[in-house]
Amino acid sequence: MIGFIRSLGRWGLGTLERLGRGHLFLMHTLAGLPGLFLRPALVIQQLFSVGVLSVLIVLISGLFVGMVLGLQGYNTLVDFGAEESLGVLVSLSLVRELGPVVTALLFAGRAGSALTAEVGLMKSTEQLSGMEMMAVDPVRRVIAPRFLAGFISMPLLAAMFSAIGVIGAFIVGHGLLGVDDGAFWSQMQTKTDWYGDVMNGVIKSIVFGFVVTWIALYEGYDATPTSEGVGRATTRTVVHSAFAILGLDFVLTALMFGDI
């Protein structure tokens, strides 16, 4: 019994400690961001590995998600004779929810896990402590450019996802199912608000980009420096990112659309 309480306490204290370390790490990273303006090449290199390499998976998933939305939406709407509203259904669900959320989940799986593994391996092969030895701050040199790159990439990727999804739905809705293209676009344009819908989606994707990159980098930086530890840290990145994305999505939706 005592042992159980003792392990519970150790677990609780450990969680609190990790939480605190994570926030200190975030402060340290944010403090390192201004220095990057002097060395944009570092950020561009990371934008390539975080952003450019994620484009393909985001575009393909976006296209198929849009096409499925087109099919499913059509089948439901046609019962009510409202198949012209397909554009509205697709654009609102993509721009408000699916664009930011699914992109963030894909981003956590594609870029986040890679970041954790990379940083974790750097730590376990003592490259980070080597940098400290040379009086180079590893947080500024390694972490900050990756953080900024993730933060910039996420909204761009989410916008691509939504845009290609709308195109996919248009291909299915107009090309295969014969929804009138004029009604498709005009209904979409009247019902989708730039500030209320599109910008809120962009805000969501910025928040998700921030959180996912933070979690990924912290897990890598804090990983146990063994091959097993890096593997566990990578798994934790994906799991914790998914929790954070879905939880934050509810909070942000309630704040922006919920009128609570």
Binding site: I44, Q45, L47, F48, G51, V52, V55, S91, V95, I152, S153, P155, L156, L157, A159, M160, S162, A163, I164, V166, W185, M188, Q189, T190, T192, D193, W194, D197, V198, V202
Partner: peptide, 25 residues
């Protein structure tokens, strides 16, 4: 690498532009 990153950013901004002009009001 720089060209690809530039293309990536241009694609993202292009997608936002399409959302603005074609999808929203």
């Amino acid at each position: 690498t720089e060209i690809l990153v530039g293309l990536f950013v241009a694609l993202g901004i292009g997608a936002l532009f399409m959302l603005a002009m074609k999808v929203s009001n």
